Amino acid sequence: MLPATATALAVLAALLAWPVPAALARAGWARRDPLAALVCWQAIGLAGGLSIIGALLVHGLAPWGHSLPEAWWHWVTRQPAVEPVRGDHWVAQTLAAVLALELLGVLALSWVRTARTRRRHRELLELVVRPGSSAPDPDETLLLDHPAPVAFCIPGARPLLVLSSGMVAELPGEQLAAVVAHERAHLREHHHLLLLPFVAWRAALPVLPAADRAHDAVRDLVEMRADDVALTALPGPDPRRTLAAAIVASAGGAGGGVPAGALAVTGGAVAARVRRLLAPAAPLPPAGRAGAIAAALGLLLVPTVLLLLPAVA
């Protein structure tokens, strides 16, 4: 039964490595509901890693039992294999261990490096910023002397929301409030955690085109989600136009003012975000969102069931 399980997991891993991410990246509904699309991307990443590692592990341990838990226990306790052990079984075990260590190691390393970079930038900024008395909610916003219109947030245990003096001087009050609302959405929903697995995926598998596609898609969706959350906090007759104007006004200062590891209002595909704000598509209906969430849960359940079903059967 394990050879069939390994084959099914390998097929699923191949689908999640290329055609499924490509289809989701092109899907028009994703921009209509960025939150549901982000859930699907997280499921693709988790299910893809579980499938490829599971396929290798199942094939490598197949001679020791008829299910993964049984074979793993027999292998750990050094019981004799019930079927002949070939070289490809040892190779599969080695590849499974190497890939698991690489993915987890790169994820941990990305976390450490990003946290270290953000901490360094936070320490430097705290030396030069001052309370933003001319910005909305000065107790939560810091002002940086910089002539270009720049706004960004640095997430973490002590998050910072920073506006440049150029931003405060150039943008009218309603647009400035839109920028602040966008950055607060990043911090409140911890969007940096949604991005981190795909930063690690791209670093671990640089030759895989799907890794770049997934990273770019998640980055754009995170910004669109922050736009949507910001709109709910903006007063006025046309908050969409206000936020779009703020993004366009900020785009010219996005080059050198945003530190690495920060999330900025000018992140992602700016032109696509502005078009989405000014010409919004119909929201995804509740049934569509429920279907997307169900598909994400299904993606996570399929490899789990394939790995455990032989033991139950």
Rank of each mutant, 00 (worst) to 15 (best):
F198V: 02
V207E: 15
L187G: 00
L208I: 12
A210K: 02
R188E: 05
R219L: 15
R184S: 01
A203D: 03
V222W: 04
V222F: 08
V179C: 07
H190C: 02
A181R: 08
L221E: 04
L196E: 03
H192T: 10
L221S: 06
A200R: 01
H186R: 09
H182A: 13
D212H: 08
A217C: 13
V222H: 01
D212I: 00
H191R: 06
A185I: 09
A200C: 07
W201N: 02
A204N: 11
H192I: 12
L205G: 00
F198S: 01
H186S: 09
L194F: 11
R219H: 14
H182P: 06
H192P: 08
A181M: 12
R213S: 12
L193E: 10
A217F: 06
R184C: 04
H192G: 12
H215Y: 15
A185R: 05
A203L: 15
A185V: 13
P197C: 04
L208W: 13
D220W: 00
R202G: 04
R213W: 13
P197G: 05
A211E: 03
V179D: 03
V199S: 11
D216I: 13
V218L: 06
H192L: 12
R184Y: 03
L196C: 01
A210W: 00
R213P: 09
R213Q: 14
D212S: 07
H182T: 11
A185S: 14
D220T: 05
R188G: 07
E189H: 08
E183R: 05
L194V: 14
H191N: 11
A217G: 11
V218Q: 02
L195T: 09
V199A: 13
L196S: 00
P197N: 02
L195A: 12
D220I: 01
R188Q: 08
D216S: 14
A214E: 01
L221W: 03
W201R: 11
E183P: 02
L193F: 08
P206T: 14
A200N: 04
H215S: 08
A200P: 07
V199D: 15
P209F: 11
P197W: 01
V180W: 03
H191L: 11
L221V: 10
L187P: 05
D212A: 10
L208N: 13
H215P: 00
A210T: 05
L195Q: 12
H182Q: 15
V218M: 05
L196N: 02
D220F: 03
H192V: 14
L221I: 05
V199M: 12
F198E: 04
R202T: 06
V218P: 07
L221R: 00
V207G: 10
L187R: 05
F198A: 00
V180F: 04
A211C: 05
A211N: 00
L194Q: 13
L208S: 10
V180E: 13
V199W: 10
A210L: 02
A204I: 11
H190K: 04
W201F: 07
V222S: 11
L221G: 01
L221H: 05
H182W: 14
L205M: 12
E189K: 00
H191E: 07
A210V: 00
A211G: 07
L193K: 02
A204D: 12
D220S: 06
L194C: 11
R219I: 09
A200E: 01
E183H: 07
A211R: 00
H182D: 10
L187V: 15
P206G: 14
H186Q: 07
L196K: 01
R213D: 09
A181L: 13
E189C: 03
P206W: 14
L194E: 13
